[in-house]
């Protein structure tokens, strides 16, 4: 047997809140409220993320330069937009000192890696002052979403929102909501996400969970800096209940278990899985095959 402990599934955090923006209750508005607060509190003077272009139907990377521009921002959580591809361009074009990023753990990984080694362009010396991790169950392609909707016999979906609710993945357009089980969704998941072991963006200052429960979304605060966002904020904030945390934890566990199966399947065929260097993978398989150990996650992962 193998334990997936909270410290591994969710990572270390100091506080957990649920937040709700004023106006229409939606997960994307809750994230926008958090970003606006970061601008207001001067924690950032620009932020990169990915946004849905409703007209074109594409998700693209965006650089948001001020609080006002957050209005046009349309987070579409589970489609990637390659936000790191913007870094070189914005470093050359704009001047900023406190850059933020809103992205999944793999996006933060790309930044961490380039900054640790310094590979790439001059942006590698840019200070990232706030990393808003987006909790993730795996990204999906645009085509994948179209297929999911086709299976529900939706012809012209014009979707504009995606989030988590009651352990389901919800796609929403102006008029309707479509829900998908983890199993349905997993089929179209990016292969790269099927080997991911960091669904909760453990290396962020704060993790935003794109969930919705009575209009509230869960956030896990990890750094002292991120805690400032919750001092007299412009959004409604409550301490998260045990059940709020457990709801995401159980969904994440479900996906992590599937991912472990995928990793083992790849290993059997001799296909590498990214996040493991040889040593770690050796230790992981040894544990998987032999023992039940407590608190091994930091050791192994």
């Amino acid at each position: 047997m193998f334990g997936l402990y909270r410290q591994f599934t969710l990572g270390r955090y100091t506080k957990a809140f649920i937040i709700k923006a004023s106006g229409e209750a939606s997960s994307k508005n809750n994230l926008k409220a958090l970003i606006k607060e970061a601008f207001r509190k001067d924690l950032i003077d620009g932020i990169i993320g990915t946004s849905l272009n409703k007209k074109e139907g594409f998700v693209s990377p965006v650089f948001i330069k001020c609080e006002k521009e957050v209005e046009k921002f349309e987070p579409f959580f589970f489609i990637h937009g390659g936000q790191n591809s913007l870094l070189k361009k914005i470093t050359q074009k704009y001047s900023f000192e406190k850059l933020g990023v809103a992205g999944h753990s793999c996006v933060l990984d790309g930044i961490n890696k380039m900054q640790y080694f310094g590979i790439g362009s001059n942006f590698t010396v840019t200070k990232f002052t706030l990393k808003i991790g987006i909790a993730c169950i795996g990204a999906i392609s645009l085509e994948g979403i179209k297929c999911l909707l086709k299976e529900k016999k939706v012809k012209n979906p014009g979707f504009n929102e995606i989030f988590l609710e009651n352990n389901k993945i919800i796609l929403k357009n102006k008029y309707e909501k479509f829900d998908f089980s983890a199993k349905e969704y997993y089929y179209y998941l990016n292969e790269g996400c099927k080997v991911c072991m960091n669904l909760s963006s453990r290396g962020s200052d704060i993790t935003f969970v794109p969930s919705l429960r009575n209009g509230y979304s869960l956030v896990l605060v990890r750094s002292a800096k991120a805690l400032k966002l919750f001092e007299n904020p412009g959004f409604s904030v409550k301490k998260a209940e045990k059940s709020d945390i457990e709801e995401f934890e159980s969904l994440a566990k479900n996906f992590l278990k599937k991912n472990i199966e995928t990793i083992l399947e790849r290993a059997e065929f001799g296909i590498p899985s990214n996040k493991w260097d040889g040593n770690r993978f050796g230790r992981f398989t040894a544990l998987w095959n032999n023992i039940y150990a407590e608190n091994i996650e930091e050791e192994v992962f």
Binding site: P61, H80, G81, G82, Q83, N84, S85, L86, G103, H104, C106, V107, D109, G110, I111, K113, M114, G120, A139, N190, E191, G192, C193, K194, V195, C196, I271, P272, S273, N274
Partner: peptide
Amino acid sequence: GLCTGCGT
């Protein structure tokens, strides 16, 4: 099958 589309 390892690309996550991060753009790095």
